[in-house]
Amino acid sequence: MITEPKLENRNEQRYVAIRTHTTMQELDTVIQQLRGEVFAWLGKRSVAPAGAPFLRNLVIDMEALLDIEVGIPVASVPSANDRVTAGVLPAGRYASLVYTGWGSGIEANAALLDWGAKQGLEWDAWETEQGRAFGARLMSFLTDPNEEPDQAKWETEVVIRLADPQPR
């Protein structure tokens, strides 16, 4: 199931994450591994998450490598290191939808992108030699797999920031 897309304004959000490059084929394994590593890092510092863990797509080339961060929102950022870094999701206007079922991610992302195109929305995105880069495009994992083991019931939010309006 995929919900109707919506537009909303969001405040900036601090987070900690691990950045890496991976292929689509390795993505699920990488997400699970890095999410656990970031949670363990926060736990050692007694820092509570301030929201759902997420996958941030920095640069996407579906045929080659994805440049991603696996992160967790936090209210305050402890001192980071070379492996776990601090970042900020920018404030702005975002389009989002929620989908159910772990295997529906590509379909849900396509649905949001198609909806945005039909609405005439301009994404905070640009082309690079490595692929399409995004200012803020993420998938927030709303379901805790420790509480709900059935992947068919997992809910994930797809979120993409819109480009800032150009002054006239």
Rank of each mutant, 00 (worst) to 15 (best):
R168A: 14
R14S: 14
S46P: 01
G105K: 05
I68K: 00
T22A: 02
Y99L: 08
S104E: 15
V158M: 07
A75T: 12
A75F: 04
T3A: 09
I2T: 14
A48R: 13
I18G: 01
A125H: 04
L55I: 04
N81A: 05
E129A: 15
I60P: 03
D124A: 10
V30N: 00
G120M: 03
E155Y: 07
V47Y: 07
I2P: 11
I60C: 10
G131Y: 01
L142W: 06
Q25F: 09
K44Y: 12
E37Q: 15
S46N: 14
P167L: 08
R10A: 10
L89Q: 12
P5S: 09
P165I: 03
S76I: 08
N57L: 14
T100P: 02
E63D: 15
T22P: 02
G92V: 02
T20V: 08
A64R: 15
L65C: 01
V70H: 00
E129M: 12
D82R: 14
V98I: 15
N57E: 07
T85H: 10
L112H: 03
A50Q: 04
I18F: 01
I106Y: 11
M24L: 14
A50D: 13
R45H: 08
R168W: 07
A75C: 04
W102D: 09
A110T: 12
E26M: 04
D150P: 07
L138Y: 10
D67F: 04
P53H: 00
E122D: 09
K118Y: 01
P73H: 09
V77T: 12
T23I: 01
A117T: 12
W154E: 08
R161W: 03
E8Q: 14
